[in-house]
Write a protein that binds this DNA or RNA. Sequence first.
DNA 1: AACAGATATGAATGCTCATTCATTTTTGGC
DNA 2: GCCAAAAATGAATGAGCATTCATATCTGTT
Lengths: 208, 208
Amino acid sequence: MRVSDKHQKIIQAAITVFARKGFFNARISDIAKEAQVADGTIYLYFNNKFDILISLFEDEIGKLILQIKQLLEKEEDPRRMLELFAIHHLQLLKNKRELAEVLQMELRQSNKFMKEYRNTKFIEYVDIISAIIRKGQAQGLFRKEVLPGVAKRAFFGALDEMSRLWVLSPEPGYTIEEAASQVSDLFLSGMLSESGRSEAAQPTALSA
Amino acid sequence: MRVSDKHQKIIQAAITVFARKGFFNARISDIAKEAQVADGTIYLYFNNKFDILISLFEDEIGKLILQIKQLLEKEEDPRRMLELFAIHHLQLLKNKRELAEVLQMELRQSNKFMKEYRNTKFIEYVDIISAIIRKGQAQGLFRKEVLPGVAKRAFFGALDEMSRLWVLSPEPGYTIEEAASQVSDLFLSGMLSESGRSEAAQPTALSA
DNA sequence: AACAGATATGAATGCTCATTCATTTTTGGC
DNA sequence: GCCAAAAATGAATGAGCATTCATATCTGTT
């Protein structure tokens, strides 16, 4: 078995175990058993437990970035690109549910307890959204007042919170495609109806 | 010292310690020291470490719900209500930063490792958003196609992801008020410019 | 088929806490 | 000020588990 095979095998096992029990409740021996490997073997490929989690992030988010970039290459319309991003992000739940669960639960707090680790891959992933927004603004399709750096986070946060629906409850009453469509529609068109939009004196400070 | 005082004192200490180290890295003795209490005393008020976290959620989210409901009572316009919710939610970062950090980091995964615990207070909190959306739809201000159950999650997720900006990086380049305004504006008006909105044949499947 | 280096094994080690409970201190009624 | 009940203390216990390392197995080269 080539070295990289065992590395991969352990990462995949870790995804399964972390998804099931969470990082802190997972034991190294759980991962070893899942990977059909001795406990000590894991330390030939990783420095420690944290290192497994970090490698997992880097490897798997890296793959996601490649996939989504490839998908977006073929598309020109920024509106459609945003929807494609949403669909692709949420489909992770179908295609790689355990990975989705781990990213959902552990990515967040990784910054907290692993002070020195800056998750550059994750930033790269979210920056795909702001790139789309800037493209839309350059084409005059999107409003100039929208701050891409803020909107990217809001859009990602909305998607990610939708993910949680499926991660935590098996049957939330919406399909993944419906949710993706709703979220990108919300961000593109907003919630206002024609009447809400055209109503004379803005009673809010929102347009500031 | 009344019983409830010590209960509160321990909860406040736990917020500080969990904010600093995260739930799993926090030691009971850390909380005890912070609360100026013996380790054993904590077990007179809580069953175990999880119980502290759960009580913390219940108590503090309960307070938030009361505050925000009181704030919204005085407001009639659903557009403004949404913005108020956003401002109030993000202001938690200013007023109770440690609590914001704990909710941000620990609330999420609580469902994961505490199987039996359903965070009903949290659900109640998020449902304030869907109530606002329904109100806006009833008044004809918001589009009927928007699903309140989906939109509430998207809106909350967007806000919460914005929170993370401040929790993780001290100086993200936006003020809390700007961010709140941007997020509610995004959800209300969307990203499309007039030209993007009026452009003839919808090239996307979003309006489905 | 013998050997060396590379890989893999898993039992043993040692540390870190959550939790307990025998003991001490505080409280308030008389 | 005395006493019993209530609260509080913190040292001791023991379970859990990441990591190590002496030993074993495998691989491929001559």
